[in-house]
Structures are given as C-alpha cells and as structure tokens.
Design a protein around this nucleic acid. Structure first.
Lengths: 154, 154
DNA sequence: GGTGAGTGGTTGATGTGTCAACAACGGTAG
DNA sequence: CTACCGTTGTTGACACATCAACCACTCACC
C-alpha cells in the first residue's frame, strides 16, 4: 500500500525542487560572469580560505565532500586554465598539494561579493529570523534521515 | 560594502545545500536499484502519465523544463536501452513522437512506489502541516525572486 | 507559388559527475 | 627485510548538461 503524495505535499516537493533549480541557475549565471563554474567555486573557496601554501588534495576533497576522482578531474581542468597549481607534497610522496595561482586568487576575490549578493537576493534575504531557524532545523532533520553525507560549500 | 552572511545565515545556506545533496543521493540510489537515473526518471514520469500513444518531444521538453538538445541526448540513450521509442509525428513532419516501450512502462511502475517512499522518508514525512505550508511559500518567493524558470518533475 | 522568419530535432564539442582499475607510497606484522 | 594492506592520486570509460551549428519543415506574407 503506497502512500502517494497529497496535492499539498506534491506542491511542496515540486516547488522545493524548482526552487533549488532556480537558485542554482542564479548563482551559476553570476559566477559565469567571471568565467567560473559552480565546480570551480566549490574548490576555489576553501583554497582561498586555507593556508597560502596550499592544501593537500585529500583534505580539499574532504572539505567539499567530493571523492578523489572528482577532485582530480576538476583540478586538471582548473590547472589547465591557470587557476591552481599542483605541487609534490613534501611530507608524503603519495600526496599532491594544491595552491591558488595569483590569477586564481584575483578571480575569487573579484567574484565573491557578487556571489554573496546573489545568494542574499534569491534566498537568504527572503526569509525572516523565524523562518531561517525553521529551515535550518528542517535541513538538519533531512540530513540525518538521509544519512548525512558530510559536505561543504561556500 | 558587501553584506557577508552571518553565522546563522551561513549555517542555513550550507545546511540547505547539503540537504539537497542528501535528498538527491537518496532518490538516486533508490532509482539505481531499478537501473534508472534521475534523468531517466524525469522523462519516464510524464511519459507514463501522458497518452498511451506518446508525447511530442517538444511537449515533453516543456513539461520537464529542458531544452531540445538535452531531451534529444537523453532520449537517444534511453532508446538504446529499450525504454522508449521514437516515431515520426503524423501531424508535423519536423516532429518526433516519444512513446514508452512495454519494458519502460514496467520499469516505471516497478520503481514508483519505492520512489515515493524515499521522498517521504527523507523529506515529506519530516515536516508537519505548518512547516509544509511555510516551505511551499518560501519556495514560491525564491522562484519569483530568481526569475522562475518553469520546471516540473514527478 | 515563392520567400523568409521561426520552429523542431539532431549532432558534435566541451565541461562535469561517477565508477572501476591502476600505480605508487606508507605503515605494520611477521 | 618482506609481505601485505590501506591510502593517495591519476586515468579511462561512460552518463549527463550546455552551447552552438545545422537541416528540414511550417507558416505567414507577398
């Protein structure tokens, strides 16, 4: 006996999916003004916030919640565009240290204000304090129910 | 003067992104048990709900909010797997009519109950009536602020 | 009946995400 | 020291998303 979704539930579920698509589109378009993708941004942010001498690819992957392969592929493309460079890790010959280039750092700093403004305009500034607390709580419940694959962005 | 996100705002924004990742992962894994992807599902659902003699590719694209190219690529892969078939459109020589095969219809009907149960388990059943109304309203506000690219799923 | 703008669909190129296989290294038990 | 196992990162194959180019067709207009 399947409990199908009621009309209200379906409206919420679909609206929520469409909301995510709309927000993703808005942030993608904003980053594209600087020649960046969401995938670029996901890696550039922790690199810009981390130590100036770079991060182990392993640690970078943990921060953003990606597997090694995805990180490696993305870094290859970003290195080809001159955003990051890969160095041998001095403490572990298996490792790779990833560091922002000067150009990469300039791009992050140029794109960050517009990114935050977009996030505010299409989402954060549209909810009041009560709603913000409730959304945070719903998100926590859902992550726990779904098995909370640790992730991180921004 | 950029208004950076406060800690609470950042927590909500990140939690919300992670929530979406967790829900997407849960539904993807459930569909994968039947050998289906989210992209397959997006097209299979309107095809299974539409007329038995199929849908114009154009109309299918409008329902799911995809452009022509994306629909065409996805249909090519699905046709190769025997889920759908493409027929010439009798009323417009430019058109293509897409129809579920018997195998495609069996797969949709086999996967649908588990899909709905997953959506309930990781999301819908975790919010009460008040929260459901509020989430629906927030989603509406966000879609309007972001420019509401019409979409549709499930 | 032509002609030209617009529509419908396909294709190829490139960027992105996932999986499995692989090579190289580190750590530990014997 | 050697054997072995777990870790780290890369690679290749394939699925998916986006963009631009292209062709065939429709339709409105002359």
């Amino acid at each position: 006996m399947t409990r199908w979704l009621t009309d209200d539930e379906q409206r919420m579920w679909r609206g929520w999916l469409d909301m995510h698509a709309a927000v993703g589109q808005a942030t993608s378009e904003q980053l594209a003004e600087h020649g960046l993708s969401e995938a670029d941004w996901a890696l550039l942010v922790p690199l810009s916030e981390g130590p100036a001498d770079g991060l182990r690819a392993r640690d970078l992957g943990r921060v953003v919640g990606w597997d090694r392969s995805r990180v490696s592929h993305q870094l290859r493309r970003m290195e080809a565009r001159g955003l990051v460079e890969r160095l041998d890790c001095p403490t572990d010959a298996r490792g790779t240290v990833v560091r922002l280039t000067a150009q990469g750092r300039r791009l992050v700093e140029a794109a960050a204000p517009g990114h935050v403004e977009t996030v505010r305009r299409v989402f954060v500034d549209l909810v009041d304090a009560d709603e913000l607390a409730l959304l945070t709580d719903v998100a926590r419940r859902v992550r726990e129910a779904a098995g909370d694959p640790p992730c991180g962005r921004d």
